[in-house]
Structures are given as C-alpha cells and as structure tokens.
Nucleic acid binder design. Structure first.
Lengths: 215, 215
DNA sequence: AATAAAAGTGAGTAATCACTCACACACATT
DNA sequence: AATGTGTGTGAGTGATTACTCACTTTTATT
C-alpha cells in the first residue's frame, strides 16, 4: 500500500501495468537502491517479486530496459518545477522576494525527494555508468533546470535583491547549497536528528545573505 | 609515469610492491572508476594489467580485498588536514580570519581531489554498498572531520567573525558549500569552462557573507 | 462457445564469474 | 648443489549470470 504510492507517484497512468509487473517494479526498485543495479540479479528480482524469471523478460527485453523504465520517467518529474511557460508572468506574481522563491523551491524539492528517495538513489548511482542515463540527465534535466534557474536569478538581480555577479555563478552557489542540504539530510545522514524547519530556514537565510548586496 | 604518481600519492611506502602488483593496482583503479566495482571482472583487470588472473589472487585474497586496498589508505589522507593536535594553538596563529581558513581548506581539498579523482570516485560510488567502507568513512572520517571543523567554527564565532547559530549548522552549511563546489567542478561538470580562481573566491565570499553577523 | 492475443511459466543455454591449484621460475641462504 | 621462499602462471572449478523458448493459463473479442 505504501509502495503502491511510490508507483503511482512515478507512473501516473496507473493502467497498462499488470499486477505482476507492478510487483516486479517494486522489487526492482527495492533491490537496485539497496544493492545497486549491477549487483542485483534478475533471478533475485523475480524471487522477491514472486514471479517466474521469464515474466520479467516478457515485459522488459533486457535488465537495462527494466532499469531505464524505472529511472527515465523520473527525469521528467525532476524538471517539472522549472518548466515555466511564461517566466516573467509567473515570477512577478507569486514570488516578489527571492526569499519566497527559495523557500518554495527548497520545500518542493524536499517533498519530492522524500517521496522518491529510492529511485533518486538509483538514478544518482547509475548516472556515472550508464551513458544513456547520463546524457538524458545532463541534456534534458540539469541543463534546462540550470538555464531557467539562472534566468530567475537574473530577475532578482535586476530588482537589486541579489548581488551582481555572473548569474551562472550565483545559480551554482544557490543550487549546490540547496541540494547539499537535501543530500546531507536525506542521503548522507538520514538517521541524524534534524530540525527540518530550522535547518531549511537557516539554509535559505544563508543563501540570501551570501548573495545579498554588500555594504 | 603519471600513474606512478597516483600510486605514490596513495601508498607512500613505495616498496613492498612488485611491478606486477603495481600494474594490477593501476588497472583496477582505472576500471573501477570507469565501469564501477561490480561491473569490473577480475579477468578484465588481469588482461589490462598484463598479468595472469591468478596473480591478482596471489596478492589479494578476494576481489573485495583489492577494492579495500585501494580505497582504505585514502581514508586516512582524507582526514589528514583536520588532524590538529592542539587546535587552539594552531588556530590562533596561522588563520586570524575565517576567510583565510576557508581559503586554505578549499584549496587544500581541491588539490587533493585533483590528484586523487579516480579513487575518490570509487570511494563515493562504493560507500553506499560496502558496509565496511561506509562504517570506516562515517566513523573515522566524516564524524571526526565534522567535530573538528565545528570546533574551528566555534572559535570564529567567539571572535565575532561568524553569526551565532548552532555551530553544527554553520559547519554543515560551510562544508556542503565547499564540497558542493568541488563536486560541481571536478565530478559533475569537469568539462565545463571554469575560472577556478574566481569561482573559488566567490564560493568563499558566499560562505563568509552567508555566515556573517547580520545588521 | 470459439478464437485469438496477451500474460505467465520454468527448465534450459552459453557465457561469464570469482577463485583454486599444481606447477614453473627466480633468487637468496645454506 | 641442494633447499626454501616468494612470485607468477593458466587451465580448470562449480556457481551464477542474463536471457530464450516451447508451453500453459488467463483475459479480451467476437
């Protein structure tokens, strides 16, 4: 039931999947994120899913195709919050201050990470080794996210809310700080006692003051 | 010759290694960092090193022992710059300002990363899957580094150079920013055109202003 | 009810895996 | 010359790998 949620998160179309196929996906996500893709055998996945090994290959031509069917749909979702059709329109209205924008982005990505931790783990683990994944991620996610984020930074720079430096540098500093926080919180030290609200706030204030106009 | 450097970096005792053993280590480092530990077979390593497969197992009981013999010695070196016997003494003298300290740490770790990139990659890739590695890293490197770093932060807080917040939070923000920069620079987008000097400086100023006392 | 298509099965396959072992070699020590 | 010791070899081991295929069962369509 909880794992069903994970699936629904990722494959918004809940039809087109057989019961056994869902079980295969759940088992694969589970094992890939725990043991790694290369160290997980199809026979183990089949066993854990309670299906015959042949059933896996009925739905996925290869083991790699199974991996891609798990990770690929997530890429789009990673990009989603930055797909803004009319940047200026959207920007002027809801987030007058950079502070509110940062808070919105941080909390949005935090929720996402919380819900999709295992698949994000798989993705990060496999990006260095699967050329197809790496290309997909760099070209269709990272680059686009960065370009849009940079434009938003420039918007706040024009408003005088952010110090004037190359917008790409300001974007890099902001993104690494946010994702550094999320990485520390959910992947590096998830067991540690975290005061989420306060740490989020400190992170945002840190970025704001780090990029504020200087006296 | 360049790869010899890498080895000397890591195994400061240059004796005790046969020629073939060195070739095995070089080949293993190369392949592990490119294809991943699990996806590299001992026969491939032997082939690349120009030795018989049995020779690998003459020196290393298992494939995992070969991995550990590569990664383990690096752990100590990771910790090295934070091993300060008399913290107060060292701190008062060379780095009067937090700025100088940050610059020293950043440049030190950047040099280290530049020289040891392949092995750092292997380490980061395998930490999630090798319990022994993870434990070694968390307990003997991350924790100690963090504790020492936190104490240094507290020193600058007492001097009024850094805003008063829980020192652990300030340390986290500082470390994720520095390592976020290094990760972006050397692992995520190493091909990108980087103005290293300027980006380093921006990163340091970002941290300083992010943690400065606020008006 | 008949038929077709899709889903599921599990024994089987060749290839590859980490690892072993009997043997060969080089080079000291006696 | 004999013996020992550490280094190197490569054919051979059983286990496991991703994947196939002839077959059965379930589901959808008429």
């Amino acid at each position: 039931m909880k794992e069903e949620e994970v699936l629904k998160q990722l494959f918004d179309e809940e039809d087109g999947f057989t019961d056994k196929q869902k079980k295969i996906l759940i088992a694969a996500i589970d094992m890939f994120s725990e043991k790694g893709y290369a160290s997980t055998s199809t026979s183990e996945i089949a066993k854990k899913a309670g299906v015959a090994e042949g059933t896996i290959f009925r739905h996925y031509k290869t083991k790699k195709e199974l991996l891609m069917s798990i990770v690929s749909p997530m890429m789009a979702k990673l990009l989603a919050p930055f797909i803004i059709h009319d940047i200026n329109k959207v920007l002027n209205t809801p987030f007058e201050h950079a502070e509110d924008f940062l808070r919105a982005v941080t909390e949005n990505r935090r929720d996402f990470l919380k819900r999709n931790l295992p698949i994000v783990k798989i993705m990060l683990q496999e990006i260095p080794f699967q050329a197809e994944l790496r290309e997909q991620f760099l070209d269709h996610v990272a680059k686009k996210t960065f370009v849009r984020f940079t434009k938003i930074i420039e918007h706040y720079q024009r408003q005088g809310q952010i110090i004037e430096m190359p917008s790409a540098s300001a974007a890099r500093l902001t993104l690494t700080t946010i994702f550094g926080f999320l990485f520390a919180r959910y992947m590096f030290l998830p067991e540690h006692q975290w005061d989420d609200e306060q740490e989020t706030e400190r992170t945002i204030q840190f970025i704001l003051h780090g990029l504020a106009k200087r006296n």
